[in-house]
Amino acid sequence: MTQFRPCIDLHAGKVKQIVGGSLTDAGATTNFVSAQGADYFANLYRQHGLQGGHVIGLGPGNEEQAKLALNSWPKGLQYGGGINLENAKSYLDAGASHVIVTSFLFSGGVFSLEKLNQMVKLVGAEHLVLDLSCRRTDQGWNIATDRWQTVTGTAITPALLEQLASQCSEFLVHAADVEGLQQGIDEALVSLLGKHSPIAATYAGGATGLDDLEKVKTLSNGRVDLTIGSALDIFGGSHVTLAQCIAWNQANGQ
């Protein structure tokens, strides 16, 4: 059944909420910067039993904050951001339940099955989340790497979801075109994931509140979870409170 999943987004060593499509090497349009460290939010999620949240490092300078969060709730959070064969195990050792991987799997924008097999061999499919974050294209949605700056030639299709499902435990999909805008979810993408993902999937991007949780539940037949970021009160939002999201989970079978 559809659940709310929490997040901790890190940029330049701070917990932030940004407009995803604005992210470049020079910076990003920022909705919120927290005075609290990542461990504060990890402990908050732990207190309320909000399993399966993701910590994402957007660019360099986030390792210290990421590991503070992971150490605060061992096996309670996933981590993604620059994951490769050299550092993946260090994040699992720091307390991540899973590592989240995208950019490492692409060379020059081309998907590498060899690299995926190497990552699976290193950490195990049960500890791997594939980040299929994407942008809209003429093909539908194509996976975007390098902080969503590079749109690859790999489209999210039923066949791709089927192919990758045996190599990981979950999919995480940020709709980068609507990420942080608080203008509503990409309904067609949620429907695609709900209909064709053989494994657990979490969607993020554009959500404003409980109405979007209801919408994701309906569109995906309860098979896709939803992350809410910028709209949430703990991140400076005014559309929905963390307490309301916790109540939603409790009412929907957490």
Score class of each variant (00 low, 15 high):
residue 3 Q to T: 11
residue 3 Q to D: 03
residue 3 Q to I: 11
residue 4 F to R: 09
residue 5 R to P: 05
residue 7 C to A: 15
residue 8 I to A: 05
residue 9 D to E: 12
residue 9 D to L: 13
residue 10 L to A: 10
residue 15 V to L: 11
residue 17 Q to S: 13
residue 18 I to H: 05
residue 18 I to R: 02
residue 18 I to Q: 07
residue 19 V to K: 07
residue 20 G to S: 11
residue 22 S to N: 13
residue 22 S to A: 09
residue 22 S to Y: 11
residue 23 L to E: 00
residue 30 T to C: 15
residue 34 S to R: 13
residue 34 S to F: 11
residue 39 D to H: 12
residue 41 F to W: 01
residue 45 Y to P: 00
residue 45 Y to N: 00
residue 45 Y to F: 15
residue 45 Y to Q: 03
residue 46 R to C: 03
residue 47 Q to D: 09
residue 53 G to K: 03
residue 56 I to H: 01
residue 62 N to A: 11
residue 65 Q to G: 02
residue 66 A to E: 03
residue 69 A to D: 04
residue 70 L to S: 03
residue 71 N to R: 10
residue 73 W to H: 04
residue 73 W to N: 02
residue 74 P to F: 08
residue 74 P to W: 05
residue 75 K to H: 14
residue 76 G to L: 07
residue 76 G to M: 05
residue 77 L to C: 08
residue 77 L to P: 06
residue 79 Y to T: 00
residue 89 K to Y: 01
residue 90 S to W: 12
residue 91 Y to G: 04
residue 93 D to F: 10
residue 94 A to G: 10
residue 94 A to Y: 07
residue 95 G to R: 02
residue 96 A to S: 13
residue 99 V to W: 07
residue 99 V to G: 04
residue 100 I to Q: 02
residue 100 I to K: 00
residue 103 S to P: 06
residue 106 F to T: 09
residue 106 F to M: 12
residue 106 F to V: 07
residue 106 F to H: 10
residue 107 S to C: 09
residue 108 G to R: 05
residue 110 V to F: 08
residue 110 V to K: 14
residue 114 E to T: 14
residue 116 L to A: 08
residue 116 L to S: 09
residue 119 M to E: 04
residue 120 V to A: 05
residue 125 A to F: 05
residue 128 L to S: 10
residue 128 L to W: 05
residue 130 L to V: 09
residue 130 L to F: 13
residue 130 L to H: 07
residue 132 L to K: 04
residue 133 S to M: 06
residue 138 D to E: 15
residue 139 Q to I: 00
residue 139 Q to R: 15
residue 143 I to H: 05
residue 144 A to H: 07
residue 145 T to W: 07
residue 147 R to N: 13
residue 148 W to V: 10
residue 150 T to N: 13
residue 151 V to G: 02
residue 152 T to P: 09
residue 153 G to S: 12
residue 155 A to D: 06
residue 156 I to C: 08
residue 161 L to R: 06
residue 162 E to C: 06
residue 167 Q to K: 15
residue 169 S to E: 15
residue 170 E to P: 02
residue 170 E to G: 03
residue 171 F to K: 02
residue 172 L to G: 01
residue 173 V to Y: 08
residue 173 V to F: 10
residue 175 A to T: 01
residue 175 A to I: 00
residue 176 A to R: 08
residue 176 A to P: 13
residue 177 D to C: 10
residue 179 E to N: 12
residue 181 L to P: 01
residue 183 Q to V: 04
residue 183 Q to H: 12
residue 183 Q to D: 13
residue 187 E to L: 03
residue 189 L to R: 03
residue 189 L to G: 14
residue 190 V to K: 04
residue 191 S to P: 00
residue 196 H to E: 14
residue 200 A to P: 07
residue 205 G to H: 06
residue 205 G to P: 10
residue 207 A to K: 12
residue 209 G to D: 14
residue 209 G to F: 14
residue 213 L to R: 12
residue 214 E to P: 00
residue 215 K to A: 13
residue 216 V to Y: 02
residue 221 N to Y: 10
residue 222 G to K: 04
residue 222 G to W: 09
residue 223 R to N: 13
residue 227 T to S: 13
residue 229 G to P: 01
residue 229 G to Y: 05
residue 235 F to S: 02
residue 235 F to G: 01
residue 242 L to V: 06
residue 243 A to R: 09
residue 244 Q to K: 14
residue 246 I to Q: 10
residue 248 W to I: 09
residue 248 W to S: 05
residue 250 Q to D: 13
residue 252 N to H: 15
residue 253 G to V: 12
residue 254 Q to M: 12
